Computed example of a mutant assay.
Amino acid sequence: MSLTLDEIKKIQKNFDQSHSVDGRSFYVSVGEEDAAYLEHMAVCLIGEVGEFCNVLKKVVRGDLSLVDAKPDLSEELTDSFIYLIKIANQFGVDLEAEFLAKVEKNKVRFKLEE
């Protein structure tokens, strides 16, 4: 299966808009008054990255093989991606445009030529 980033963003937005916990929607359009919610999502994102790192740490110290850990690593990386998409959706960040702009900025920074 191959999806565009825009399709993935729409799927996540539809999921978030159709779910709630204790009457609180999974989707909040983040504005100036919602900085605490944005912070919460950022902490969730970093928590998922931390879980990825924790599994990887177990591989490095020899508790797990990379092959055995890959399903858990894949899940934690996907959880991280979901929070990144949620933040972009709810904070109004155009990841595609920002990615392309950053690549151009990095070409100058690292003196890369096409």
Rank of each mutant, 00 (worst) to 15 (best):
M1A: 11
S2V: 13
L3Q: 10
L3C: 07
L3H: 14
T4Q: 05
L5I: 15
L5N: 12
D6R: 14
I8Y: 06
K9N: 13
K9H: 14
K9V: 00
K10Q: 15
K10G: 00
I11T: 03
Q12R: 06
K13V: 04
N14V: 11
F15P: 00
D16E: 11
D16W: 00
D16I: 01
Q17R: 08
Q17I: 01
S18N: 13
S18W: 00
S18C: 02
S20H: 09
S20A: 15
V21M: 08
V21T: 11
V21Y: 11
V21I: 15
D22K: 07
D22E: 10
G23F: 08
R24Q: 14
R24C: 03
S25D: 09
Y27H: 06
V28S: 02
V28N: 05
S29T: 09
V30C: 03
V30E: 00
G31R: 13
G31W: 04
G31P: 02
E33A: 15
D34H: 15
A35Q: 14
L38S: 03
L38Y: 04
H40D: 12
H40W: 06
M41E: 11
M41Y: 03
M41D: 04
A42R: 07
C44Y: 01
L45N: 09
L45A: 13
G47C: 05
V49P: 00
F52E: 08
C53Y: 07
C53E: 10
C53K: 07
N54G: 12
V55R: 01
L56P: 01
L56S: 02
L56W: 10
K57P: 00
K58T: 02
V60R: 08
R61G: 00
R61E: 15
R61N: 12
R61H: 10
G62H: 06
G62R: 04
G62L: 07
D63L: 08
S65D: 06
S65V: 09
L66P: 01
V67D: 11
D68S: 12
K70E: 13
D72I: 00
D72F: 09
L73A: 04
S74Y: 09
S74A: 14
S74R: 11
E76C: 02
L77D: 02
L77R: 03
L77W: 04
L77V: 01
T78E: 09
T78I: 10
T78V: 10
D79Q: 10
S80Y: 02
I82M: 12
Y83L: 14
Y83C: 12
Y83H: 11
L84M: 14
L84I: 11
I85Q: 09
I85D: 04
I85F: 01
K86D: 10
K86Y: 03
K86F: 04
K86I: 06
K86V: 07
I87G: 08
I87L: 10
A88H: 03
N89H: 07
N89Q: 08
N89M: 04
Q90E: 15
Q90F: 02
F91W: 07
D94L: 05
D94Y: 02
E96H: 11
A97C: 04
F99P: 00
F99M: 13
F99G: 03
L100Y: 12
A101S: 13
A101N: 15
K102H: 13
V103Q: 10
K105H: 11
K107N: 08
V108M: 06
R109G: 01
R109L: 13
L112T: 06
E113S: 12
E114V: 12
E114P: 13
E114M: 07
E114T: 09
E114Y: 13
E114H: 12
